[in-house]
Amino acid sequence: MSTLSAASVEAAPAIQDSEQKKPLKPCCACPETKKVRDACIIEKGEENCTHLIEAHKECMRALGFKV
């Protein structure tokens, strides 16, 4: 069992390193503002959620996305 534990400990940093090197995808950025924005659009329509849409765009821009 100790061999398995050592392998697991060694593998964990490699997984974290590869995740950190991957660029952030637009679909995964700003989940807080995206969720609220999407719920508002579904319930009230896009025209009534401009403040939430702009907040999400600002969050995306802050992360370096061009929107």
Rank of each mutant, 00 (worst) to 15 (best):
M1F: 10
S2F: 05
S2I: 11
S2M: 13
S2A: 13
T3N: 13
T3H: 13
T3V: 14
L4F: 12
L4H: 14
L4V: 11
S5I: 06
A6H: 07
A6M: 01
A7V: 08
S8F: 08
S8I: 11
S8T: 12
S8C: 12
V9N: 05
V9E: 07
V9F: 07
E10A: 15
E10L: 15
E10Y: 14
E10C: 10
E10F: 15
A12Q: 08
P13N: 08
P13T: 04
P13A: 04
A14M: 08
I15F: 14
I15D: 02
Q16W: 09
Q16H: 14
Q16M: 13
Q16L: 08
D17A: 15
D17Y: 12
D17S: 14
D17W: 06
D17C: 05
S18H: 09
S18Y: 07
E19L: 15
E19G: 03
Q20G: 04
Q20I: 01
Q20T: 01
Q20F: 01
Q20M: 05
K21E: 09
K21S: 07
P23K: 11
P23E: 03
P23S: 02
L24M: 10
L24D: 06
K25I: 00
K25C: 00
K25P: 00
K25W: 01
K25R: 10
P26V: 10
P26K: 12
P26H: 11
P26S: 05
C27N: 15
C27P: 03
C28K: 13
C28L: 11
A29S: 13
A29C: 12
C30N: 07
C30R: 07
P31M: 06
P31A: 02
P31L: 04
E32Y: 14
T33A: 10
K34Q: 13
K35T: 01
K35H: 02
R37N: 07
R37D: 04
R37W: 07
R37A: 03
D38I: 01
A39Y: 03
C40P: 09
C40Q: 09
I41Y: 00
I41Q: 12
I42S: 14
I42N: 14
I42D: 10
I42E: 15
I42M: 08
E43H: 13
E43D: 14
E43Y: 06
E43W: 09
K44L: 08
K44Y: 10
G45C: 05
G45A: 00
G45D: 01
G45E: 01
G45P: 03
E46A: 11
E46W: 03
E47H: 06
E47Q: 15
N48W: 06
N48F: 10
C49H: 05
C49S: 02
C49M: 08
C49A: 03
T50G: 00
T50L: 09
H51I: 05
H51N: 11
L52N: 00
L52M: 07
I53F: 04
I53E: 03
A55C: 03
H56M: 03
H56R: 09
H56I: 00
H56K: 11
H56G: 09
K57H: 02
K57E: 03
K57C: 00
E58G: 09
C59V: 00
C59W: 00
M60Q: 05
M60R: 09
M60L: 14
R61M: 04
R61L: 00
R61H: 06
A62M: 04
A62T: 15
A62H: 11
L63R: 14
L63W: 06
L63P: 01
L63N: 11
G64N: 11
G64Q: 04
K66T: 13
V67E: 11
V67G: 12
V67L: 15
